[in-house]
Amino acid sequence: MQADPPILTVERISKQFGGVRAVNDVSLEVRQGEILGLIGPNGAGKTTTFNLVSGRFSLTSGEVRLFGRRITGLRPDRIAGLGIARTFQGTRIFPKLSVTGNIETALLAGSRLGFWEDWLGLARARAVRKSIGGEVARILDFVGLSEHADSEAGSLAYAHQSLLGIGLALALKPKLLLLDEPFAGMNPRETAEAARMVRRIRETGVTVLLVEHDMAAVMGVCDRIVVLDQGQKIAEGTPAEIRANQRVIEAYLGTDDDA
């Protein structure tokens, strides 16, 4: 029995698309309360790994466990219910709903609001809705979108949409948050702000696994880093160790132009 059991265990997972092994025998552990970065050159299989953990793709082989419980093969909505929330590359939100509406949708999805009590507008349902209203405000405040609460989500600036995407994930009250390229398309100032927010998320007790291209940001924000190349894990360690790792340097140099 380990003293500090990992929150997420990924054991020898593989994913084959047609004849291509996008992810090959990758194992990793995410420890409670850490920020783990998953990096690698283009096509290394980072996002595929993400999709395997969050249930978007089915595994060809291997196993994923959350708190020791096997979650392989569960539908994404069940996995979300068990405490893994994710964001999407290029962010994914409900563009036609308001910012408030977006967060509200995620909170309603997770709420225990019975159909009939809600449909009839019973007192309990009204109380639940009221508490959801308060939570929306809290989350918007946390991601810094309070002043845009009533805007249509699709009309927000790109960086704000990314923040809203993170807000949506936080609304699921996850234990583990998967961030897919959270800093993509941000300028350095926005990146620094978002990185601060990732740390603040961790301070609220949420473990974070993030995939990222922006090396500087990853080095700054992560406690540990796992490096993938061509579907396989080639290194694991603290940012300092990774920076000094010869194989990592080679992998990145080899695909210099698309980094």
Binding site: T105, A109, W119
Partner: peptide, 22 residues
């Protein structure tokens, strides 16, 4: 109602809906 909002969410984006637990 909650059901109405879930329907709208699914109509707007099935994939995202699934990942927020619907």
């Amino acid at each position: 109602s909650r059901t109405g909002r879930m329907l709208v969410a699914v109509r707007e984006d099935e994939l995202l809906s699934e990942f927020i637990g619907i």
